[in-house]
Design a protein around this nucleic acid. Sequence first.
DNA 1: CTGAAAGCGCTTACAG
DNA 2: CTGAAAGCGCTTACAG
Lengths: 340, 340
Amino acid sequence: MSIPQTRRPAPTLEAVAAEAGVSRSTVSRVVNNSSQVSPEVLATVSAAIEKLNYIPNRAARSLANRQTMAIALVVPEETTRFFGDPYFAAIVHGITMGLQESDYVLNLQLAGATSPSPKTMRYLLGGNVDGALVVSHHSGDHFLSSLDETIPVVFGGRPLRPAEEHSYYIDVDNAAAAAKGVDHLIALGRTRIATIAGPADMPAGIDRTEGWRRSLVAAGLATDLIAYGDFSMVSGARSMRELLDRAPDLDAVFVASDLMATGAVSVLRERGLSIPGDVAVMGFDDSPAAIGGDIQLTTVHQPSIEMGQKMAETLLALLRGETPERVCIMETRIVQRESA
Amino acid sequence: MSIPQTRRPAPTLEAVAAEAGVSRSTVSRVVNNSSQVSPEVLATVSAAIEKLNYIPNRAARSLANRQTMAIALVVPEETTRFFGDPYFAAIVHGITMGLQESDYVLNLQLAGATSPSPKTMRYLLGGNVDGALVVSHHSGDHFLSSLDETIPVVFGGRPLRPAEEHSYYIDVDNAAAAAKGVDHLIALGRTRIATIAGPADMPAGIDRTEGWRRSLVAAGLATDLIAYGDFSMVSGARSMRELLDRAPDLDAVFVASDLMATGAVSVLRERGLSIPGDVAVMGFDDSPAAIGGDIQLTTVHQPSIEMGQKMAETLLALLRGETPERVCIMETRIVQRESA
DNA sequence: CTGAAAGCGCTTACAG
DNA sequence: CTGAAAGCGCTTACAG
């Protein structure tokens, strides 16, 4: 753009064929590394490709074989939240790693927390991508069903019914993981254990709350201390204030995400309460947020990067026509640090 | 994918033409809203498009008119940092807003802090996108020059020389903005003012440091207290510790990003220092990080969302063949909250 | 193993 | 204002 230069047209298959003295079909076979090419021809064609620095035209290829070689990353979430939570960073990191070796490109589709724009819908449903990866879906995301019926889709986290019966997804056992976290708090001798829960319209929110409740019930403890956040730091702070006002005697809090936990921690300090002395805090995710603040968070680790990678791999398998496992549940574990 | 259904082929231009009783050329003109179509024909064709729910095939269109209708978002940065900083959230938010009404899609290209993969290079340079938006570039990003020579590029933040002489970019006057922030600290009566600077290989890092220095020099104060971070929370904490160890008497710190400032704040608390009583803290960005913690950060506001939007608009103008302003410098201002 | 030919679904001069 | 025709750069049966 800046430095003027004569734009020589990019070499085509035709040019390579001429250079190598073979037909276009043959060059095409080489490019798509078909097995039925003789070694000698393969060599000369490869040389010609190299020499001309040939790069296949994506549009022409798509038109001919009806594949777009593009994958949509659909995020039914506000940009602010998407980028504000390190958890997403890890997922996307994993996704890009998983796509690294493939020829697919990733199209970012920020759908907004409500329903996506007509433009996004047309894009997704209009045959512009071969598959989709969806992350952070809410129960109101009905459009996802139509998506799921049109192209291969892999979800990050169990989709809500009725989609869950047939959808592909990667997840952890959120309820069990949360229960494990609360068990740890109980083992510490805590008896007044609150929770800052995630949204009640998201599986991760619902299931972690369920795990918290299950663990408390099993231990014969009260399950009245619950406040709902939206996974953001600010909502974590707000919820903590609310809980403290309601129950000044609480001695532990299980928080459904590390980011909310950092918000909770700041309120605890503000009130002059010691951690974990007065109140033990258990986070969830083991994202960078757990170790960024002034107190290292004890938390439930979930392998976010690996989950993203697995999402990509599963979709890639689906696109190859293979039949990968429909659901993949990954391991979680408690990472003990300072807060509990 | 899930619910089996006979996949009826998507309607083509041909089908619409048949339905409307006109030629393909005419339908094409309507789709591309060419002015030379009679009102009646326009009406019937539109009806046919509506009836068949026709969506143009992107690949075919690209092949014919040599436009990809795709824009790359290039981030020469580690995923972790990209997603960890709310500043990027704002920029991308703005970019998606700016692209909303256009027909362009955004391709995410995480290039990694070092040079991009061959795959990314081939993608970017191989005619797969019509233009690129680049954010967070370092001085070592030489590949960006080749990009800039191949397709229209708009930078978020002044690119380093020699690119800056001809490149398009949106930025703030970082030096002046930083000086303004430090002036505020001086007006508060602070005399021992440190800085936690950004990377010395990034324009935003360099210029803000320069502004800090300029302001101190003008006031006849010492400029020896400087520590370098990488814009992350962790590096902010590390730098704060370092500064405190070197100069226990410092009474203010100008931090080149809010995220680093939150790290600094946690260290200040850890050492039992009051904010702003003992140490005043001035951040930069006015991102969500400034208000997420337990103390509301006084900071230098830059209009990140608007900057992203402006980036998108500038690139769109370039793609339309227009000649937008080559450089756009946006306003900053001090937002006074609790920390200074 | 290799090539000739048709076709993917559009756009765009060129006539009229 | 409208249509016939060529062409964009590939892939893919179909022959051989």
